[in-house]
Amino acid sequence: MLSLLLIIIASLFFTGIIIRTKSILSGRKGPGIFQPLKDIWRLFKKGAVYSNTSSFVFQIAPSIYFASILMAILMIPLGGHQGIISFKGDFIFFAYVLALGKFFMIVSALDTGSSFSGMGASREALYSLLAEPAFFILMSSFALLTGYTSFHEIFSTLHFGTYISYAIGALAAFVLVIIALIENSRMPIDDPKTHLELTMVHEVMILDNSGFDLGLILYGTNLKFAMYGGLIANFFLTPSYEWYFSIPIFIGVQLLFAVIVGILESFMARFRMNHNPQYIFMLTSISLLIFLGVLLVLGKIA
């Protein structure tokens, strides 16, 4: 319950902090932290325009997408506190639930019949399938390291001892940050600010969404960011900490994560579209590196 609340609170600030960081770094005054939230609130109250090509799939997809993210958040633990739903192998459920949301978003983009949306859908489908193996290998490495197969058990028994394990932790955090960036279609993969539809990935998929649906999608992105932030924070929360320690650590990690995303977006350019698959697949090799590290730590290989 605690993690759900904290993640929702973090999601309220997340995009705001990213935008604030970017504006500070580029020397602009920039909007306030709550501006993205105000935009979403405005969208919630607005009416909608539906294309005459689209069908009910287009109308239910954003809601299912949002529900899938909420469902995934329900499974995130917080240090010693387990998520609302927690069982052996819950991270498999986590990944597949997110995939369900993505399935609906891709299909709804094809539902508009627009060539641009189709293009975005094609790219999103490809990138998300390439990013998936990294997450699974990462989780199986930690399952191997701790001997458990659920988020709660893994994170509550995880502790870093040797130097290699610190390296593993750092690499894991790196992989998760990149996965979060890919899943949310952020900078090195996709530029949310671009104005050219041909170079968009996620933005072009939701060109036809408006009103409440668009609000849901935008807020869904915030939630997803905070969710991955929460996941990363769990690496640094050990169950021995009391809540008055773990909550500040959680908030600190989320803040750091948002600032890092802001910095990355300020100083990096988007990759060429045909280099993206290689870049994303690189993640899998990094997570294989983590796996090797875990084998080293456990002494399975000399």
């Binding site: 607005k46 909608a48 539906y50 294309s51 090509t53 689209s54 627009s114 641009f116 949306s117 009103g211």
Partner: peptide, 14 residues
């Protein structure tokens, strides 16, 4: 979205 106005138009072709 009950009070909001829902309208139908062609797909946005950029």
């Amino acid at each position: 979205t009950k009070p909001a106005i829902v309208s139908v138009s062609p797909t946005w072709g950029c």
